[in-house]
Design a protein around this nucleic acid. Structure first.
Lengths: 163, 163, 163, 163
DNA sequence: GATGAATGAGCTTTCATTCAT
DNA sequence: CATGAATGAAAGCTCATTCAT
C-alpha cells in the first residue's frame, strides 16, 4: 500500500506535515475517499437536468461519470482501490454516498414510476457504477473506440436497469 | 494488507513454512489468486450444459457463480481484494481467465448469433461478473430475500447483455 | 556476522536510524570500510616527510600504521574482518586504496631507484600491511615488549622489501 | 556467511544429514578448519627434508604451501575466511597449529642457531604465512608470471626472516 | 543412518508516527 | 505551522536445527 512518505512526496509536503492535517493514515484515507467521492459527485451533479426525463437524466449522470473517470484516471483507480481495500469505515462509506442523494432520489422515483426495474436502490447503483467503470476501462484501453464504447455502455446500462 | 504472519496463522502453519511453499509473498498471492479463480471456475463449469440454449447456459453459469460466492464468502472477498489490490501481475490475470474459456466461447457465439449484445467479450464478462457480485452482496446482506434477489440479478443480467 | 541491531546498539542509535543513513547493510559496510581506510590513511599520511630518504619515509609510514592500529584496536579488527569477509565490493576496495597513493608512488620510485625489491607494488604493499598487522598483534598480546617488537617489525619489514 | 543448506548441497548430502555428523554449525566450522589445516600440513610436511639446511627446508615448506594454495584455491580462501571470521575458537586455533610442530621446531632451532631473526616463533610464522598467501594471490592473478613470483616470494621471505 | 519438510527465532528492512527545531 | 531526522514496532524473509519418516 502507498506509504505515508510516498503520499507526502506526491502531495508536495514534508512527511511530518501530513500528520498536522490528519491524525493518522486511517483518517487520511477516509478523508481522501470522501474527497474523491465528492469530486466525482461534483462532476456528475453540476447542471444536473432535474427536469429532463429519466433516460436523459440517467444518460447525463452516466456521461459525466465516464468523463470524470477518463479525466481523473488515477483518482478513479485510487477510489476503487480504497473502496476494495477494507480500509474504508462503514461510516465513511455512508458519508460518501450523501452527495449522490439526488441520483438516489431519481432512481427511487424511477422505480416508483415503473420506469426502472423493481430492485433495491443499492442494487441499481452498483450496477450503474460497475458499468460506468467497465466502460471507462475499455475506453482507456482502446481510446480509438471511445465513442462506440460510451454508447455501448449506456445502451447496456439502460437495458440493465429499466423495467 | 494481510501480513505473512497472519496468513500463516490462518493457514495453521509456521511463518517460515509459507516460504518453503512460496518463494515470496508476491508469488503466494499470484498462486492464491489462481487457486481461487480455478475453484470458482470448477464450480461454474462442472456439468455445464453445453447443449442448452444461451439463456439456460447463462443462467447456469450465473447461478453457479452466485452459489459459489455465497458458500465461499471469504474466498470471494479475497479474490476481489486481490484483484483490486494492484498486486496481481498481468500474466497471472491472464492465466486466471483460462479456466473460463468455455464461457468466453459461449459469449463469442452468442454475439455472433445475434443473441448477445455486440460488445467485446471482456466487456460482457465484466458486466456479468459485477452483477453476480452485486447479487451475492445483496443476498448476503438480506438472506431472507435471497430467492427474489437471485431472480432479480439474472433478470438484470440477461437484459444487460442481450441484444 | 554483526547484526544490524547490534550495530545500531553500538552506534547508539535506533535500528531504523541506520537505514536513514545507509540504504542497506551492504552499503553500510562499504562506507564503513572506506571510512576506516581513510582514517588509517589520514593517520599515516599527515606530515608525511616527502623529502626524507626511503628508509625514513618507510619507517614513518610503518610507525604511523602501527600506532593507528594500537590506538584503534577495534577499528583495525573491523577492517580486517570486513576485508576478509567477501562483502567488500571490488570497487570499494579500489576506492580504499586511493588515499594511499603517495605511499604507492614512493614504492614505485623505490623500485625504480633500485632501493626496493623488484616486485609488483601490490606485492610490496601486502607484505608491508601484513608485517604491520603482525607487529600490532604482538604488541597487543605482549605490551611490555612493545618497543622491541616495533623495532623488530620494522627490521623485518625493511629487510623484506629492500633489494 | 555460508548457510547450512548451501554447505549440505555442496557436500552432496541432505540438510539434516550434516547434523548427524556435527552437533552444530559451530562445531562443523571448527572441524572444517582443522581438516583444512591438516590438509595443508599434510601437503607441507610429507617428505619434509629434515636433514637439509635451513634455507632448503624453509624453501621446501614455502613451495609446498604455495603449491597447496594454488591447487586448493577454494580451500585456502575458506581457511582464510574462517580464520578471520571470529568463529574459530582459541582452542581450535591451537589444535590447528599442532600438525606444524616440526616447522615450529625448525624455526626455534634457526633462531637459536642465529640463522633466523631473533623474533617470536609466532611472529616468524605469521610473516611466512602472509608472504605465502600474498605470493599465491599474485600467481593466481597473473599465472603467466607464476615462476617469477614464486621465486620473488621466497626471496622476500628469506630476507624477511633471516638474521 | 539419511532425509527434507517444518519450525520459530532472529535477521534485514520498511514505515507510521513523533518531536525538536 | 512546517519540517524531516529519529524512532521502534512490525513487516517479509532466512536459516540453523529438529524429527517423523
Amino acid at each position: 500500500m502507498a506509504s505515508t512518505s510516498s503520499i507526502a512526496r506526491r502531495a508536495g509536503v514534508a512527511e511530518g506535515t501530513l500528520f498536522t492535517y490528519f491524525k493518522s493514515k486511517e483518517v487520511l484515507f477516509q478523508e481522501l475517499y470522501l474527497h474523491l467521492k465528492r469530486s466525482l459527485a461534483g462532476a456528475m451533479m453540476s447542471d444536473f437536468p432535474g427536469e429532463a426525463d429519466y433516460r436523459q437524466r440517467m444518460q447525463y449522470v452516466y456521461q459525466r461519470y465516464v468523463s470524470w473517470g477518463l479525466s481523473n484516471a488515477i483518482e478513479r483507480v485510487v477510489v476503487a482501490r480504497l473502496s476494495a481495500s477494507g480500509q474504508i469505515l462503514d461510516d465513511t462509506r455512508s458519508q460518501g454516498m450523501e452527495p449522490f442523494l439526488a441520483v438516489s432520489q431519481m432512481m427511487r422515483d424511477g422505480v416508483q414510476d415503473g420506469v426502472l426495474v423493481d430492485a433495491p436502490i443499492s442494487f441499481i447503483s452498483s450496477v450503474i457504477e460497475n458499468i460506468c467503470n467497465t466502460t471507462i476501462e475499455h475506453v482507456e484501453k482502446l481510446p480509438e473506440e471511445a465513442e462506440r464504447h460510451r454508447q455501448l455502455g449506456f445502451h447496456v446500462l439502460w437495458r440493465a436497469i429499466t423495467a
